[in-house]
Design a protein around this nucleic acid. Structure first.
Lengths: 233, 233
DNA sequence: CAGGTCCGATTGTCAGGACAAATGCTTGAC
DNA sequence: GTCAAGCATTTGTCCTGACAATCGGACCTG
């Protein structure tokens, strides 16, 4: 484990436990490095990673201060399944459909394949505490992974992809709202015309290839997106 | 202007213009540094900033590759006014209310002030192309800035804050949806019960002080949040 | 007392060097 | 022909050293 990483972990833990009070100075980098027996660049790298996380603020001529907390976790490309699990919500999935199908113009554009080319259509219902939570509709390139329904019911799509050797890199998302159709309302246990939270997402791996196009709807009465943003300096 | 910044700008421009093709190797850092007359750490710092932006991918033993694009701009703490302006949407604002008022329990908790303490309530209607777009309701600490209605109508709240010497640092957001009340529907020109996109946000400055608590509703028929996410490694 | 000026403290930038770790290709053995 | 070992390439980590830019307070001056 790299030294700068160990140090940043220690500092983060110290901040978390209140051993480093919010607003307090961290002590200058030169002394800190000498005291730890490290070089200044190494110490700087550790500090920088915490600055990027929003836990610290640097000011030239002044020092490095612990930010007055409230920072929990910045927005990351997360899986609904993992989020629910982390929140202790007992997530579960029912696979409604898993079938090849020719790509429509919209899907083809999103995935960067030819219109009419075969893609895998996935329709799932996601539960939390045995209550329906979201209706998930995904399109994947046909030959990307073999995702049997069994594995998809016991975990999230992203975990299946990662296990299949795909390195997720970035995603383009769009979050909106609309009224539920009759069919959607029935599936999710909402009244007709109830407001739904919608999310469209195209996910890319580190070669820039689109690996997933998702069109999801969430019950607005039971779900909202929560996240933390940092100002990029 | 720092050297590493100049270099990262040049590289970014080269990628943008296609002079560096997606998927192509960048050439090893040692040669690059020698060719440019820079040290390797400087070159690495420039490359690292583009990796953080999602434009490049590094692989030990292989090299640094240009990612297959699609990356536009990562999610940042942005102002609706600036976003609309950047999209050429002719933003405009009408200030409906600007009045001191004692903080409710919810507002007090969000801003970290005492319940009943005086805060500034701000209600605005945001237009795009002369069409109502969103109803913005903000609470600010009473003595934070003097924001006359005039300035608020000609620009966004964040710009007023920055001009007042406040350094924005982070925000905690929550995005959801619900049906419009009769009053909201009337104000926004939507039918009763129309789905609305909601956003709550507490914004902090770099000392950790809460500087704003906003509860906004957007016409779902005319607005959605679009952003780009990167996987944090 | 008010205002500007200087100075110490601290982070920001940059150079140059050394070794470790991972990757992919080549080479060699069976 | 196939598989494994080795080697070159490239990024990852870490060190030392130096100077610049900025901030805040102390100090001096009017």
């Amino acid at each position: 484990m790299p030294l700068y990483y160990q140090l940043s972990q220690q500092l983060e833990a110290a901040i978390e436990r209140g051993r480093l009070a919010p607003g307090s100075l961290l002590g200058n980098e030169i002394d800190l490095a000498a005291r730890l027996g490290l070089s200044r660049p190494t110490v700087r790298q550790a500090i920088q990673s915490l600055v990027d996380k929003g836990l610290l603020v640097r000011r030239r001529g002044v020092g490095t201060q612990v930010v007055h907390s409230q920072v929990k976790r910045p927005l990351e490309l997360s899986s609904l399944y993992d989020d629910l699990e982390a929140a202790g919500q007992r997530p579960a999935t029912r696979v409604l459909r898993r079938t090849p199908r020719p790509a429509t113009a919209e899907v083809a554009a999103a995935l960067g394949v030819a219109e009419g080319a075969e893609v895998l259509l996935l329709e799932r219902l996601r539960y939390a505490h045995d209550e329906p939570m979201a209706y998930l509709r995904n399109h994947l390139p046909a030959d990307l992974i073999d995702c049997d329904s069994e594995r998809l019911e016991s975990t999230g799509l992203y975990r299946v992809m990662r296990a299949g050797g795909i390195t997720l890199h970035s995603a383009r998302q769009s979050v909106g709202a609309r009224a539920a159709t009759q069919e959607e309302a029935g599936r999710l246990g909402e009244p007709d015309g109830a407001p739904l939270l919608t999310m469209e997402r195209v996910t890319f791996d580190d070669t820039g290839r689109a690996v997933e196009f998702g069109s999801h709807v969430y019950r607005a009465s039971r779900y909202s997106f929560e996240f933390q943003l940092l100002v990029r300096p």
